[in-house]
Nucleic acid binder design. Structure first.
Lengths: 146, 146
DNA sequence: CTTTAATAGGATAAATAAGTCCTATTGCTA
DNA sequence: TAGCAATAGGACTTATTTATCCTATTAAAG
């Protein structure tokens, strides 16, 4: 589905969002610990997210990552996935055919079409704000609940 | 979604199924040409499909691959995907969390759940027979329609 | 029974994804 | 303004996936 990098990216964004909502900036170290990911690799992914302007970074002591609270609602899974895996990752033909389309459908096309559409809608509709709310309310978790 | 190997596997199965329905055995060369895949790599994948008993092979001159016509309806995308990519490939957490579950859901869980279920149902319900029929009726294609 | 056309399978290579390491840069703080 | 705590970024390593090559095995057909 998603690459490992993208999974980490989504999880990292949730942590940054959650902290930004509380007015806190989070460091790479804190993020990596919170989402249980390798620090150096996570650093690369955060760089990409910064370049894509989904989050921003502050260097130096007391630095770290944050996002504007006003962006929590606008930023969705779709934005993150496009930034890391690219748009093709979820719009491509399920059988890998270059020229699969409505006119030239692959044998799985008609069966997969509505699922792909729902998936894309899910990505568009899942904002960081909602996901953070779910975590705050104990309805979702990024690690073992404890 | 699927690995390249799995995409080739599905496409290869469709070709084998289509020919078996007509009482023809198909060679590796024919399959690779029909699905536009690298021959040697496709050979490996066909070996896996044979080991999984989704198709069977005959060595020697006039040899090749085929399946029992009676299996066309039973054999679904699910069987092929499990044989090549494994069951986890479509049952795992979308955010890559080891312990994501109903009780300990990830922030995307509830949004993704019904899509995953539909996807799994689609895999279960898509038989080779139906896909071959679609091709025979000109409703689906594995290559550019021409 | 030899030749030959096919698949089986092991070893290897190439490409990509995942992950690490080290140095540069930035900017706060004493 | 020196020191330090943080991110930025380039170079590298490792793991996995994708792909190729070569030899063995099988079985039909002359």
């Amino acid at each position: 589905m998603f690459t490992k990098a993208c999974e980490y990216a989504i999880r990292a964004c949730v942590i940054v969002a959650q902290n930004s909502l509380k007015g806190n900036r989070v460091s790479l170290k804190e993020i990596a610990r919170a989402i249980d990911s390798p620090e150096a690799f996570t650093a690369k992914i955060l760089q990409q997210l910064v370049k894509s302007k989904l989050i921003y970074s502050v260097q130096g002591p007391q630095g770290g990552f944050e996002m504007l609270s006003s962006n929590l609602e606008k930023t969705t899974l779709e934005h993150i996935v496009i930034a890391i895996d690219g748009r093709e990752s979820f719009s491509a033909c399920v059988l890998g055919l270059k020229d699969c389309s409505e006119i030239n459908p692959c044998p799985a096309h008609k069966r997969y079409k509505h699922i792909k559409n729902e998936f894309i809608q899910m990505l568009k509709n899942s904002s960081l704000l909602e996901m953070v709310h779910d975590i705050e309310e104990g309805k979702a978790f990024l690690k073992i609940s404890s």
